[in-house]
Design a protein around this nucleic acid. Structure first.
Lengths: 204, 204
DNA sequence: GTCTATAACGGGATAGAC
DNA sequence: GTCTATCCCGTTATAGAC
């Protein structure tokens, strides 16, 4: 189905996603969205009641249906090394398709009292601590060093997400084109797991 | 000099910094700033001409005078290991004093065409490639592995900055208090250099 | 330098015709 | 479902009195 055949509601939602991800809730306007969807403000409110309701729908989808599931790869049932490679690879590919996603999610959680923070802690129910158990098991077997799993988890997330959060800074500082940036994050698919695994495995 | 003795101009600037860092340019209002500085909108415009001019001054100071100098520790003249520890320590202490700084800088650079991106690439003049040279020298001596210095640099930055960018996400997901968060990043002062150095030193 | 009042504008939302 | 016209509010900026 080509883009032109989408229902008005779908066109508005697609436009809203694009605009909100580019500008954030505060700087995006209903006018932007309507224009981008090739309709008018009245229809945006007809389908979604308000800018805020529309936004919450986009945020929920981005976070709950896209971001969180990818992060959950760490809870999969896979050997440690394979899992880390899979996580970095899948997450990187996801972010290459949707490079503004991390900044969108995190910038809307800048205010500690925002609805988005509430939403995120709400979704904090399924804590299958498989990754933590796995690190502890491997450490007990002597395969890796004993370590704080939260530190490892955050470092892993950091190294994958940060380049996208600081994409324009990186491009500015290193004079990178978009293609070079994507090559750079592709190289990290090998680099990041190597670093994590070197840390976990090397004695000291 | 106590806060109450500051000149009106200084009070406005302090207030503007606080408000802009909390909300970003788009969501901050001149009213917020005036109220926070305990004056009125007219005076804000009297001293700074417009919201945008005020903002640019705050951004310049935050970026040029605070953020960039800290990042430049990597170009210091120090042995590799000591330098990495110093960088992580100093940067973490800076961010503990100003935890909103990374999100402020990066979120304002979300739009590729923003003035802030221009500013950042403008400041891209002093590229003393001391850190790069150092990694290459040590690799030539066989002390560390041969590696892409940009990957190492970005990973290092990632691990230090990311927790502050995702502070509220982290707090929500891990049910952390502010104190626990600060304890967490303090532990990373040891953890991050260990990871980088394990990667650089371990053969494979 | 400081304040009050107001102009000029842009934003979200809705009424009502079709 | 769709559109035009409009309302109402918050925002930036400034004029003008003190």
């Amino acid at each position: 189905m080509s883009k032109i055949d989408l229902s008005t509601e779908e066109k508005i939602k697609d436009a809203a996603k694009k605009i909100f991800l580019e500008k954030g809730f505060g700087s995006a306007t209903t006018r932007d969205i309507a224009e981008c969807a090739d309709t008018n403000i009245a229809l945006v409110n007809y389908y979604f009641r308000s800018k805020e309701k529309l936004f919450l729908e986009i945020f929920r989808e981005s976070f709950v249906e896209t971001f969180a599931p990818a992060a959950r790869i760490l809870e999969d049932n896979l050997p440690l090394e394979a899992k880390i490679y899979k996580f970095v690879d899948h997450m990187t590919e996801l972010l290459k398709r949707d490079p503004l996603l991390p900044m969108f999610v995190f910038s809307e959680m800048r205010d500690e009292n925002s609805k988005m923070c509430e939403l995120a802690s709400h979704l904090n129910t399924d804590k299958s601590a498989r990754f933590q158990e796995q690190l502890e098991e491997e450490a007990a077997k002597g395969n890796i060093r004993k370590t704080d799993f939260q530190q490892v988890e955050v470092s892993l997330m950091s190294m994958v997400l940060f380049p996208f959060l600081g994409m324009n800074m990186l491009k500015a500082k290193k004079n990178m084109s978009t293609e070079e940036f994507y090559r750079f994050v592709d190289e990290r698919k090998k680099n990041i797991p190597e670093m994590i695994l070197a840390y976990l495995r090397c004695r000291e």
